[in-house]
Amino acid sequence: MALLEVEGLRTVFPSQEGEVSAVEGASFSLSEGEVLGLVGESGSGKSVTAFSLMRLVQAPGRIAAGSVRFEGRDLLSLDEREMRKLRGRRMSMIFQEPLSSLNPVWTVGQQVMEPMLLHGGVTRREARERALAMLARVGIADAARRFNDYPHQLSGGLRQRVMIALALVCEPKLLIADEPTSALDVTIQAQILELLRDLQRELGMAILMITHDLGVVAEIADRVNVMYAGRIVESAPVETLFRAPAHPYSAGLLQSVPDMGEERERLPTIRGIVPRPGEMPPGCAFAPRCPYADAACTVAPPPVHTLTDDHAAACVRPLGAHG
């Protein structure tokens, strides 16, 4: 059975033109111990998806439809008290900017102890010991001394390690990581990705890795969902996506990343810009930018086309599909 099953998730925000959906009909599942990459550009709805799973969508936004089943329970029907019991214990989240998600007036140690004390069942002494062990586990040298430091005394890389310790100290089954390395330098990013990979194997947790960076996906994900304008447009194992992307958007995205293997005069581009929410074209949202689009693409949102049992694309005529 899947650890997380999302069906037809729709999250909307009010605007002058009425409600616009930031996430529209997202369906995917995540098995235990699996790393799923959720890739998209700004405004694609990838972060809103993450916040929807945690039921942390900021008002006036709201989840309008769909179901989110986690360990067999429907999260959208739980009351807030039960939801709080899950957050930080069974499912945790880490963010792009660790400085703003850590409380500046508390020491690192106090913050890492907090989730254990909140969820009860441990004494302060046990919590302290486990927090220390966790800080050491995420690679913080001299954890006992760092325990009493404040967040501003740490470098960006160390702060992200503290965030990870805080998220994982209760050993959750699911970690939602929202651009956890985007604010970090490339050498520090490599350290954090390696750490996440190790911890994932060791704790057997699943990771939903939200990122705009295809390199991060290539580095860590088992499977990938590509999002565009609020919809999941392609879902594939990571090797398949990089070798044979089926959706023209995924293909364009992969090609427009400069790579160091060959020298090209010009970078292939995706023409145009992402449509604004509320100004979505009636058919496929990517049609105005798609090199292969024709009349069929502008009628209705494209159906999900299953290429193999683990590869699907929401496209009228996916690349590489014959017939």
């Binding site: 925000f13 009010p14 002058q16 930031a22 405004g43 709805g45 900021q58």
Partner: peptide
Amino acid sequence: MATRRSGP
């Protein structure tokens, strides 16, 4: 994405 409606 989220356009905030500025209250009354």
